[in-house]
């Protein structure tokens, strides 16, 4: 079933892309955290609070990305199971 193999390899490529995206989001979150620390040190409370909300939002993004990754793995497993028959 070369067609199923193609589906699996396509899904695997997607999964790799999502992994890269997760890395990118992690980098962004780290940057936001560092800036949050700086803002708190300076004492800009309003900006720090706004950036704290941004950080939470980025954590939510990370959770979405992880869920997306899980879903793609599930799809790959299902496709591999379809090969068996």
């Amino acid at each position: 079933m070369s067609s199923i193999d193609e589906v699996i390899s396509s899904l695997s490529a997607n999964s790799n892309a999502v992994t890269d995206l997760q890395g990118q989001i992690h980098g962004t979150t780290a940057m936001a955290e560092e800036m949050l620390k700086q803002l708190q040190e300076i004492g800009l409370q309003g900006k720090a609070a706004a950036l704290g909300a941004v950080k939470d939002q980025l954590a939510a993004c990370d959770a979405f990305a992880a869920a997306l990754q899980n879903k793609l793995s599930e799809a790959m497993t299902s496709a591999a199971a379809a090969t068996g028959q």
Binding site: V7, L11, A60, F64, L68
Partner: peptide, 27 residues
């Protein structure tokens, strides 16, 4: 039938991706 399950899961993955994009837009 098994492949149909794969299609469903890929659709779910696509909706998750859309949610991720929306969350990043909000951020």
């Amino acid at each position: 039938a098994r492949m149909r399950k794969v299609v469903d899961e890929v659709e779910e993955a696509e909706s998750l991706r859309a949610a991720l994009e929306g969350a990043l837009t909000k951020a």
